[in-house]
Design a protein around this nucleic acid. Sequence first.
RNA 1: GCGCUCGUAGCUCAACCGGAUAGAGCAACGGCCUUCUAAGCCGUAGGUUGCAGGUUCGAGUCCUGCCGGGCGCGCCA
Length: 504
Amino acid sequence: MQARFMQLLLNPNAIYVVVSEILDQGRNFGRAAPNSGPRVQVEFVSANPTGPLHVGHGRGAAYGATVADLLEAAGYEIEREYYVNDAGRQMNILAASVWLRYLEELGAELTFPSNGYQGHYIRDIAHRLVVDHQNRFEHPVTAVFADLPADEPQGGDKDQYIDAVIERAQQLLGDDYEFVFSAGLDSILGDIREDLSEFGVDYQVWFSERSLTRSGDVDTALNILESKGHLYEQDGNIWFRSTAFGDDKDRVVKRANGQTTYFASDIAYHMNKFDRGFDQVINIWGADHHGYITRVKAAISALGYDPERLIVKLVQFAILYRGEERVQMSTRSGSFVTLRELRDEVGKDACRFFYVTRKSEQHMDFDLELAKSESKDNPIYYIQYAHARVCSVLRKLEAEGLRWDQASGIASLALLDSEAEKDIITKLSRYPEVLTSAALNHEPHQLANYLKELASDYHTWYNGHKMLIDEVDLRNARLTLSVAVRQVIANGLELLGASAPEQM
RNA sequence: GCGCUCGUAGCUCAACCGGAUAGAGCAACGGCCUUCUAAGCCGUAGGUUGCAGGUUCGAGUCCUGCCGGGCGCGCCA
């Protein structure tokens, strides 16, 4: 930085140096040396594996993946992790739902619990169970529903009812209950994994909540809190005195029936994270979880770790629009738009780009029509088109039997001395700092906006200057700058999870 | 009710941990195709940064109050 600054003072041609740096370094231009920075874990999405991901998860996925990729490009050693909430009541409801649909597949006639999972994907899982295991899990309907309390439509309590169904399933299935449970979990988790992978989001670690109980981490964490005097008993429950660390109220970690709470798992999970030696732990949560930040940080402090090392980024939900019309979504009624449907309709590149083009904590409107449109109105197409345009010119060049001479182009860069050209070159030289700033501030939109500007500058310049001209030196200079722009756009698009097409 | 968060052009958003006349893109209006992709380019117009105070040499940015939107306030996960 210092050196280049000196060069700028001493030599007006120094601004051109960046062009050859870009061409020399290619994909690595703007990147720091790999693993030269802190070791950081980024945990994101972590949606309950009770159904497919929807568009709300999509924003967290795109944001988390991009922040992780940006930090990695900035030299951080990154571990991407998905926390699998595979313990708890919701998962049992899933297992019971699968089982009942399985019985229906075998011909049983029954009334599905009002609190069960209604989605069609449950039937698909049940169907596979029948195909693979025939009637192995079958029990007479009379035995299944004998002496159960009333469901809500019959004037009962839907929660009590579904709990009774779960208990009955466990009684009748015995060891096979775990099998049905796993069939549901594995199927949905597999679907989520595939969905994310197709979205360009891949994890190093899938961390199971149940493993925390099995490994004894939950007990260990509670024992540590106990030994430090942060727990107390009241009404038969064990409470964590989180108010001592700024929380509004104390929190139960173990119920009177001996069951630990989800929060206890969370305490153990964060202890586990810190014990793995990360310099920094980044949690990306939906905005509806903001109330948990205080208590989790309280637990981290109580365990003796520095809560400053935990960074929680909240992501607001996106509201889908189809043109003017708002797309209604309701998870309960099952009328939600899945991430897969969104990808199918809009395409991965536009999805990834649109999601991160706004600050994460900002509410955003996601316009499906705009994301799909193939015009300059659509920023992702606009940027990709700048890239394709350069490729197109090079193809045309070749078709005319000409060659791009890079060395000649570099040597002739000083011919590009208009303000527009210098602006483009200056903008190119800013790329590394934009990348670093976007990474360290966890603000991918900085890079997205930069790419829009660069593409705009390039389109403007391109429109006013013909590339394929007879003057060889000037032609090579223009092509060289074009290729440098193409490289930086490709680098930026890669970090945003979008492709850089050679033709459109 | 309490807490968190957001409020910037008609619309969607920027503004580099307070710094100079608050910037883009859509939409609107006016131009540019015998020429490498018009999937593009140029120009014009558009703002009392929700409101009212305060701190500061300086506030979209920090503080207080109010108004409005979103979210949260389980021995659910």
